[in-house]
């Protein structure tokens, strides 16, 4: 009861228990999601294989190496439907119905609350196929897992997940001003679909765009490089920095939006 961390952890456990109960309440059709995940995987593999006919390679990545990237992408898609979409879409609803007031009156960080309340089982099949593909493809690429490699990969996956979260949260925050901007999330998703392929598969100008402006490179290519054991230390540090920067930015932007909300709402 005393320490705040314990309180946040307990809240989280309760929230997720509640979220799961909610899923069971509507009996989400998980079977359908399994089918969708498999169909998606087959489609992605087919599409990728089109670039590999006749001994060609994609941006200097071998077939199994590119599969690791695809695995990371699939994993992130799964995380999106399990965590990001269910939570961040509620911000729009809160703003529309005025129930954001209740969130702001709880003695708990509002960003934490809005980012963790929901949890959906929908993305689990994709998380599973993504992880499976990553592990299988890395083995196929002849990677021997060492603890150091594993740590590195997990760290980069964490950084990529946080970066993805920051991007989503930034877009979701804009709905404090314009409810309609929630659709911008679909634009973001379409743009992030570039992460299916290693960044070196793109022309130089696009590559710069996807590294500097929209950090797609840090979402999938960097974690895949880590898993393949060829990530250099500067890139590792850069990736961590980008993730922290994204997180800080999302936090600052939320505080700014909130200041606007609390001084302007009626």
């Amino acid at each position: 009861m005393g320490n705040p961390l314990g309180r946040y952890l307990l809240t989280l456990r309760r929230l997720w228990g509640t979220a799961l109960a909610m899923q069971l309440e509507y009996q989400a059709n998980l079977l359908l999601e399994v089918v969708a995940a498999i169909a998606n995987l087959i489609g992605s593999l087919l599409l990728l294989s089109l670039f590999y006919g006749g001994g060609r390679a994609l941006g200097g990545w071998s077939w199994p190496q590119a599969l690791v990237v695809l695995g990371v992408y699939t994993l992130l898609e799964g995380i999106t439907s399990t965590w990001l979409r269910p939570n961040l879409s509620t911000i729009v609803g809160h703003v529309q119905q005025g129930t954001l007031d209740f969130v702001l009156l709880k003695p708990i960080d509002s960003q934490f609350w809005l980012s963790t309340t929901r949890l959906s089982l929908m993305g689990l099949p994709e998380i599973a196929t993504g992880l499976g593909l990553m592990i299988w493809a890395a083995a196929k690429a002849g990677i021997r897992t060492t603890p150091w490699l594993l740590c590195q990969t997990l760290l980069m996956l964490l950084a990529s997940g946080l970066l993805l979260y920051s991007l989503w949260f930034l877009v979701a925050t804009t709905s404090i001003w314009f409810v309609k901007t929630w659709n911008a999330i679909e634009v973001l998703r379409a743009a992030l679909s570039a992460g299916r392929y290693p960044i070196s598969a793109y022309p130089a100008a696009v590559r710069t765009l996807f590294t500097m402006v929209l950090p797609v490179a840090f979402l999938t290519t960097v974690p895949a490089e880590a898993m393949l054991g060829r990530l250099t230390l500067p890139w590792l540090l850069l990736s961590l920095m980008v993730a922290c920067l994204g997180l800080a930015l999302s936090r600052a932007f939320w505080q700014f939006a909130l200041r606007f909300y609390t001084s302007a709402s009626s």
Binding site: L50, F51, Y52, G53, G54, R56, L58, G59, A190, A191, S193, A194, Y197, A201, Y202, P203, V206
Partner: peptide, 14 residues
Amino acid sequence: VMLAVWIESPAGAA
């Protein structure tokens, strides 16, 4: 996005 990949890949020329 797909155009960017196809233009860069030799698969298009093939």
